[in-house]
Nucleic acid binder design. Structure first.
Length: 950
DNA sequence: CGCGTCACG
DNA sequence: GACGTACGTGACGCGC
């Protein structure tokens, strides 16, 4: 049976207004706002998917309003006169709607002097006359007049894609209380404030419906007015009858307009993929692009990496393309900030934030650690100087002082929660991870607050300017520094508000006026920075790394920090005592050997004892005029048969382990959770790596048996295990790929021992000695090699080291080429780039000072490799929880990241299932953006402790 | 607060 | 001829 023709008429203009207000303010990689365009594109996509359904479209057209006046203005000049101008960031989206439609190869209809509604009505009636069904894709109430069934059985209905609802006669009756053919009469009576259709003052939807239901139609209702009982309604109907008649004409749809294109022109065929793919890719609609690629059964095509644009470091970058320069912002004015102390004021600010759809926020807490501190207040900013502070946990400055007036904390959080969690409002934080953690813990009885979606100005700054610290101004990404650098504004220093040292007070004790100035300023500054960075990201090619890697990582890492990891306190204490005993006994022996007591932990005293008092040789003084006593020096002495050297080395090791680990880790156990919560810095390492502080859980010992015991103190909860998954030799694999070294790639592909393979290539034979040398050289390559650096590590002369480097380059010419090309690129652009486009700046790469220059060169060789590795594991982290959830393993907890390793905690029974998902996500983490020509090997271990999981 | 040292990748 | 001597981190104790 042939499918009955079914015409879809899409009311494009009405749609984008709704999409604009419902969707977050996205921008495409060029910085153009495209939130509404995205919504529109998604809608077309959904419609296109219905193509093959039985009741799906056979014909489709998009109808748009054309700018300018319509015939209705000739009848009534005030028609649509009080419409506010379209929002600033919607205007550039109008032309893109046409692009989007063309990308789907769909016809667009627009005609001057006619509104979209008239064209829709005319097409609908024409189609109906031919016996076609018609679906109007809109939710505009005016169009509901068209709904119904013609004599020939052809029907007109409507589809509201946002609510995914079909609208037919019953739905119209629900809304208006009348059948569709009487909707115009109801509308004429009630008027329309948005379109400025006058109607009759004092008559709203209820009365209008009642009158039409009672009297049948408008004219009858007007005619019946004199007979009505005296009162306002009667008067209005009589006095304003003409207004109602005028309104009736205004709301009537023109159903016989000439059709710019014949109906047959709207026939749907298969939608060509190429123009669509180009459009989706141009605007960064990657989710749809993926589905498109999946749909055509081809492998996902790696999206184009950002072309490396030559950047003139001295020229401001904010002038590219057609992007309008930012309007200047007024200077920061603390007097403009509000302190919110009533629910009414709070509600007003929340409404402002919803209306602005972008809000910067900041939390103030009683202490610095996000896991232990209490929420003291929240600040919001919706524009420059439009900021407020909401105190929630302030008390008096001392115990006799009364707490200031504040909104009840639970009540305030209940009102803030919908705002902070709304998909339609972007929340901006400076180091948002901190605030995410505070708010996730606050309001706990109600599940906490899961702030989303977020932008983070600190992370944005990092993705734009990592490494740029040597250009005269600080290179950090802290708020005070960013405000100074980008806004020329000196923030109120925290210590000025809370003091320092012994006299420091909690933020909860700060008087509200000062607290407001400080806290609201933070939100204000964050808002302003966001405006600058959001524009710069696309202009400077940093959108990809920010949007795809670092931005989604914020919430992911925040959750890892909240999980924390369990440590066995008793076992740590036991080790501590054991170490203490050994330290004490070594101390005695060392003092005896030295012939006098001294402070072994003082390199100064130790050096003097060894090289002056005891007269040992090999003492070398550094620039501080002090003897060096580090491991290499002491090991050399030991090899020469100096017994005290061994003892000092042992003493050092144990002292280090005890103070840095066994003691410090016990102190780091949170009294609240009983676990240890590190804090990861997303901007700590210039290469893109994370760093870990308070405590640093990325340097827990593993290399020596004695140190490894500390890893055994990291344990899983009862009934659970720890799973450690690490990338095997990932940096060398990436070097093999990025430098294109066939021999190394082949060795990795074959699963060979890479250092042995290197030894075979370099020395022609593999034994312990050659493998060890090959390993050292392999690492030297990754770090930027020099003969003087390599020589002492191999125990050879610089000349011999140079010979090995030469051999290495001869056997693996790609490496030498990579180093040259990388350095040339960095010298020219002042930054390096990872496979995923992460930049790392090297402002001293062309320094006149050799040491400075060479240092930058070595770092520049390493940065793309170390940074790509960081990108890959970050991508794995971002994808991990969704992948685990999809596999029914949402309860698996990701706890730690140690550069090439992820540590999880999970029930024993889930090990096999989790192992599969985790291994797969990690191995595939570079795809589809970068297709690494070497497999990413992942090794997984499981055990009751971290030590046992290796 | 700078330095030397050493824990990790 | 001096410069420094492999990349990236963070924490500790000493001594000023």
């Amino acid at each position: 049976m042939e499918k009955r023709s079914h015409l879809y008429l899409v009311d494009g203009s009405a749609y984008i207004f709704r999409a604009y207000h419902r969707l977050p303010p996205l921008t495409n990689p060029q910085g153009v706002p495209v939130g509404a365009v995205f919504g529109y594109t998604t809608m077309l996509w959904k419609l296109a998917e219905d193509l093959h359904k039985a009741d799906g479209p056979t014909h489709l057209a998009v109808i748009l309003d054309k700018a300018g006046k319509s015939f209705r203005n000739d009848i009534y000049p005030e028609y649509k006169a009080n419409r506010p101008p379209a929002p600033e960031d919607l205007v550039p989206q109008f032309p893109l709607i046409r692009d989007a439609t063309r990308a789907f190869s769909l016809p667009v209809i627009e005609e001057g002097g006619l509104e979209a509604d008239d064209l829709i009505a005319s097409y609908a009636r024409a189609a109906q006359a031919q016996g076609w069904d018609v679906t109007i894709v809109s939710s505009d109430k005016d169009l509901m007049q068209l709904i119904g069934v013609a004599q020939n059985g052809a029907r007109v209905d409507m589809l509201d894609t946002m609510k995914n609802a079909r609208i037919f006669i019953p739905e119209v009756a629900d809304k208006f209380g009348v059948t569709p053919d009487r909707v115009g009469d109801v509308l004429a009576l009630m008027g329309d404030a948005v379109d400025n259709v006058p109607g009759i003052r004092g008559i709203g939807p209820k009365t209008a419906t009642k009158l039409i239901v009672e009297h049948g139609d408008l004219e009858s209702a007007l005619a019946a007015a004199p007979a009505m009982k005296a009162g306002k309604l009667r008067e209005s109907l009589i006095e304003q009858a003409e207004m109602a008649r005028l309104s009736r004409v205004l709301v009537a749809l023109k159903e016989d307009a000439p059709l710019p294109l014949p109906l047959e022109a709207f026939a749907l065929g298969e939608i060509p993929k190429e123009p669509l793919a180009d459009f989706l890719s141009e605007h960064g609609f990657t989710s749809l692009l993926k589905r498109l690629d999946a749909g055509r059964g081809s492998p996902e095509r790696p999206t184009q990496l950002h072309p490396a644009k030559p950047v003139n470091a001295s020229a401001p970058a904010a002038t590219t393309g057609s992007i309008t320069p930012l309007a200047p912002m007024p200077p920061i004015d603390h007097g403009a900030y509000a302190c919110v102390q009533t629910l009414e004021a709070l509600d007003a600010w929340i409404a402002r934030a919803f209306a602005a759809r972008v809000v910067a926020f900041d939390t103030e807490t009683s202490a610095l650690d996000a896991i232990g501190a209490d929420l003291v207040g929240v600040s919001l900013a919706v524009g420059p100087n439009q900021a407020c502070y909401i105190p929630l946990g302030h008390h008096g400055s001392d115990m006799f002082d009364e707490a200031p007036q504040q909104i009840d904390r639970a009540e305030a959080l209940a009102r803030l929660k919908p705002l902070l969690e709304s998909d339609a409002v972007l929340k901006i934080g400076q180091n948002a991870k901190y605030d995410l953690n505070v708010l996730a813990r606050a309001y706990k009885d109600f599940g906490g607050i899961a702030v989303s979606p977020i932008d983070d100005t600190m992370v944005m700054s990092f993705d734009l300017d990592a490494g740029r610290g040597d250009e005269g101004i600080g290179g950090g990404h802290g708020m005070d520094e960013l405000a100074q650098r980008h806004l020329g504004h000196a923030c109120i220093p925290f210590k000025e508000v809370c003091g320092t040292g012994k006299k420091a007070i909690s933020f909860a004790q700060v008087p509200l006026d000062r607290a407001t100035a400080y806290a609201a300023e933070d939100a204000d500054v964050t808002w302003r920075l966001h405006r600058l960075f959001k524009l710069r990201l696309p202009q400077e090619g940093a959108t990809r790394i920010y949007e795809r890697v670092d931005r989604p990582l914020v919430a992911c890492v925040a959750q890892m920090e909240r999980h924390g990891i369990k440590v066995d306190r008793e076992r740590l204490a036991g080790l501590s005592a054991q170490f203490a005993e050994a330290i004490a006994s070594l101390e005695g022996e060392i003092h005896a050997l030295a012939g006098e007591p001294f402070t072994i932990g003082s390199p100064k005293q130790l050096g003097e004892v060894l090289f002056d008092k005891m007269g040992l040789k090999g003492g070398k003084k550094g620039k501080s005029g002090q003897y060096s006593t580090d491991v290499s020096v002491l090991e050399k002495l030991e090899a020469e048969g100096v017994p005290i050297a061994r003892k000092v080395l042992e003493w050092r090791q144990l002292a280090k382990l005890r103070s840095t680990y066994t003691e410090a880790l016990q102190a780091a156990i949170s009294p609240i959770t009983g676990r240890v919560h590190t804090s990861y810095s997303l901007v700590g390492a210039q290469t893109g790596r994370l760093s870990s502080t308070e405590p640093n859980l990325q340097n827990i010992p593993i290399r020596t048996p004695i140190g490894r015991q500390i890893r055994d103190c990291f344990v899983a909860e009862e009934g659970h295990v720890l799973l450690a998954a690490d990338y095997s030799q990932i940096e060398l694999r990436l070097a093999a790929h990025m430098a294109d070294v066939p021999a190394l790639r082949a060795a990795f592909a074959a699963g060979e021992d890479i250092h042995a393979a290197t030894a075979q290539e370099l020395f022609g034979e593999v034994n312990r000695e050659t493998r060890g040398r090959a390993k050292t050289i392999n690492f030297a390559i990754l770090y930027g090699i020099s003969r003087w650096g390599l020589a002492p590590r191999l125990g050879v002369t610089a000349e011999e080291a140079q010979a090995m480097i030469d051999t290495y380059f001869a056997r693996f010419p790609g490496i030498q080429r990579y180093i040259h090309e990388t350095l040339d690129g960095v010298r020219e652009k002042s930054y390096s780039e990872t496979l995923f486009g992460r930049k790392c700046w090297f402002p001293r790469i062309n320094s006149k000072t050799q040491a400075e220059r060479q240092g930058s060169e070595r770092a520049a060789i390493n940065a793309p490799i170390q940074g790509t590795c960081a990108d890959i594991i970050k991508r794995a982290m971002v994808r991990m929880m969704p992948a685990l959830q999809a596999a029914g393993l949402g309860h698996v907890r990701m706890l730690l990241q140690v550069h090439d390793e992820l540590v999880f905690e999970l029930p024993e029974g889930d090990v096999e299932a989790a192992r599969k998902v985790i291994g797969e996500v990690m191995a595939q983490a570079a795809m589809p953006l970068a297709d690494i020509s070497v497999p990413l090997g992942v090794e997984i271990g499981v055990g009751a402790s971290w030590g046992a999981a290796h």
